[in-house]
Amino acid sequence: MSDNKKFMFVNRKAPYGTIYALESLEVVLITAAFDQDVSLAFLDDGVYQLKKGMQTKGIETKNFSPTYRALEDYDVEKLYVEKEAMEARGLNEDDFIVGVTVLSRAEMGKLMDEQDVVLSF
């Protein structure tokens, strides 16, 4: 068995309402430290995780979104956003805190199929 696998992290939940977005980032960083092939996929409300300009002082919670910009320091550079989900939320690529690759649903589904491990948050 190969010790280098394709890990995809599927993010479908909005930030702050639940902890999952933050926890996903934690596992992403650890997985990168294990030298695995890491991709992040943003679907549905998960797209909101990437919105720039978050101001979390009023809810007394740490703003974790700058971490997305630090991912490239860990060689995590595959960030995919589902086009239909992005458009359904009135967002475009300029709204995101980090550069992403926008994929159609069909392209996203194909990419999921190619993974060894898919973790959902």
Binding site: K5, V27, I30, T31, Q36, V117, L119, S120
Partner: peptide, 20 residues
């Protein structure tokens, strides 16, 4: 233990199934 144990499960196991 740490989150590394989760990543290791993904690496070592043939399938990783999540319930949540």
């Amino acid at each position: 233990s740490g989150l590394g144990q989760l990543v290791e499960s993904g690496i070592k196991c043939d399938r990783l199934v999540t319930f949540g």
